[in-house]
Structure formats: structure tokens, C-alpha cells
Simulated assay, not measured.
Amino acid sequence: MSLGHYLAVVRGKQLPFWWRSKFLTALNGFSSLPTEQLWQLHDELTKSLHTKQRRNEPAQQAGRNSLLDLKIELTRRIYRSCTLCPLMCRIDRMNGEVGRCGLKADAHAFREGLLVSEEPFIVPTYELFLTGCNMRCKFCQAWEGVVRTNLGFKLTGSNFAPKVERKAKRGALNIHFVGGEPTVNLLAVLVSLKSLKVPLPIVWNTNLFATDEAMKLLDGVVDLFVADFKFGNDECAWGIGGVRGYVATVQSNLLKASRIASLVIRHLVMPGHIECCLVPVVSWVTQNLPKVTFHLMLNYLPDWRAWSDKALSRRLNESEKQRAMAIVKSVGLKRVLISG
């Protein structure tokens, strides 16, 4: 889908997926149905979102449930034995249990604001940095929000909607969920969207270390994925990010993301990890998603646990930057951004 859908929403030619999900009528009384039947209904309704749409959708009938309500119900059920990410903790988040991400049912934003330092087609963007993450990257610059999951303010519809409305008046083009990792905060995000009356597109800044169920729930909510493809092999993913089975999971989810929304792929070049990580990442993207915008990030800064890792405890040198740029420019990617 490249950037087509997202840009059409920004320009007022299409409505955001989440907005259409909010007004797409679903079956009433679905909370009593078995989960398998709910997924069937969900998939049918989500598929209809990708058909030709009108700019002005009809209002939902009063008292009727929507596709967004259905997504909320399914997410609540997942939270009772959480399987949103491949770690498959299966803890009951609705009853206060926590797994690797450190989160219960609530979400907290430890930072928020109108920012202009992202990709040019995203800014100005209203970013909410949500606590908690299912990865533990040694160099994480948001580490405080990852380990202190109650930091900041609780995300609710009553405080989310006014903030968005104020930022929209100041020129925000979108609502940009960052982390930590937003996917493990999915329930609170969906519930908060129900209260929102401003149809801004949703940007989902994610590590894409998520299950098929999570990706299906994001379909019909996210308008633009800004996805980190961090590691080019599973050994580096385990040693630096603390997760196993990383590469196949992210590759699969990048393909899914490209089919259900607009997509930008980011790769932060790590010192000493050009051949093992950048090269295979660029090779895979070139072969599988050559038309997707690829953002090469050369602004690595050591933080958190990176100081204890000799390879990661420094910035990129000029030789590494030149090598990284040469690699990306040599493969024929159609849309490349370079920063740092």
C-alpha cells in the first residue's frame, strides 16, 4: 500500500481506518458469542474496510455495536491470557497479572507532545510515548518508560480526546503512538479511540514483534505503520533485544503491514552491526518490499545497558556511516530516507 492510503487521509480524500471501524455496524450482543465466531465476524467486517469508500460515511445507528467495539471485546479476551506477542506469556492482565511487557490492562503515557523530528510526511505529529515493551534492547533510549510502566498519566478517553483536539488545532497531521511498544497497550488505545471526535490518521511506531492475532486487530485501526526492522539475524536479536524467533516474525508482519496499511521501514544502524544486521535487512526489503519507504537511521546513541557492551557503547564512526549509505544506495530501493 506504500504511502498512498496515509497521504489520502492526510489530504482529506479518505477517512482513517479506525474512524470507519468506529462507525461500521457490527452484530449486537456479540459479547456472549464464542471467540471463534467473533473472529469470523471481525474478519468479515475488517475486509469490508478495504473496499471502495466514500469520503462521508453514514453515521452508526444509535445503540448499535461497531467493528471497533468488536476489536475491544476480542482484545479484552486476549488480555485474560495474553498472546499479543510471540512471548506468549498467557497471563491474566485483566486481573492484574504482568508478563514481560510489565503491563496490566491500563496504559500510561510517559511523554507526549507535538513533534517535528520524524519523517517529513508525518510531521507535525502528535506523539504519545506509551510505557512497557516486549523487547529489551540494550541501547533503548526510552528505557525509563519501558521499566517504569506506571510512569506518566493513564491513557483514558476522557484525557486522550481533549489532548488530540488541542494538538489538531495546532496543526497535528496524525496521532502517533510510540513506545516502549504500543501494540502491548492495544486495549487502552482502542477504548480511548471510542471517545475521539477528530478523524486524524493513526501512526503506529512499532517493533512489529507481534502475533497474527495482534496484526488482525491492528488491521482497520492503523493507517501508517512506522516499523523498526532492528536486527538482521536471530543471534543479534537475542543478544541485544532479548527475544527469540525475531527475524521470521518481523518479516512476516512487515508483509502483513504492507497489505493492510501504509508502511515505512526504519533501520537504526548499530556500531559493529553493518554486515550482520544492515546488510540482511536491506537485502530482504529489496527483494520483498522494494517500493516501501526505507529510512536509514545513522543517529545511533548509546544508552541504558549499551554502556556495558563494548560494541554498542559508542556512536557510529564516519566510515560506518559511509558504508551504510553505500549499501542502501546500491540495491535499488525506490524510496530511501537517510537521517543522522
Rank of each mutant, 00 (worst) to 15 (best):
D309C: 00
S308P: 02
G272E: 02
A105D: 08
S66R: 12
H295L: 02
V243I: 14
V98W: 08
R111W: 13
Y79A: 06
N185Q: 14
E127S: 15
F231Q: 00
E213T: 13
A8G: 11
L41Y: 11
L24K: 09
N207Y: 05
T206F: 05
V10S: 05
S2P: 01
V250C: 10
A142W: 00
R64F: 07
M94N: 15
A257C: 11
L193W: 00
G63A: 12
C101H: 09
E119Y: 09
N95Q: 14
V164D: 06
F30G: 06
F153G: 05
D219A: 15
F160A: 05
N134V: 01
G180A: 08
L24C: 04
A59G: 12
G232D: 04
T125G: 15
S48L: 14
Q61F: 13
A326F: 10
W18L: 01
S195T: 08
L255Q: 15
L3R: 07
N134Q: 15
S252W: 10
E36R: 14
K216T: 03
S48M: 14
N56L: 12
N299Q: 15
N134G: 05
H108A: 00
R93V: 01
V189M: 14
V250N: 04
G157V: 00
R90L: 07
N185R: 06
S319L: 04
R170V: 00
V247F: 08
P271C: 07
K230Y: 08
